[in-house]
Amino acid sequence: MEYGSRVLEICENPKNVGAFPKSAADVGTGVVGAPACGDVMKLQIKVGDDHVIEDAKFKTFGCGSAIASSSLVTEWVKGKTIDQALAIRNVDIATELALPPIKVHCSVLAEDAIKAAIFDHRRKQAGAAPTTAPEVAP
């Protein structure tokens, strides 16, 4: 299949490949997909006290479109608040990358990965509230 120029460009030089320590309280990790389906995305966000995503990293097992989708969303979520990041839709990703219909599921996976990372972060915050946020205690 012919790739769009954006996908090729990103795959040549993907941004934000890497990992944060999974156990850190300010890190949210989302892993979506399955090896048997040929796509696994792991997306991590590092969230500041102001609910702004300071940094994001990914690792992806999947085709070029899956890699490009992950790289793109890590760039997009940086500097956004959690609520803004939750508003990212797969169609935005698919449009930006000019994904053909058969590759749209890659953008769906990327949207799911952001959500999964945000939920993981929320879960940690809820569970760890007393120790990580003593300064907000009255």
Binding site: P14, A19, V40, K59, F61, I67
Partner: peptide, 8 residues
Amino acid sequence: RAMSPLYE
């Protein structure tokens, strides 16, 4: 592999 979550 350096960017594969499975390899990691």
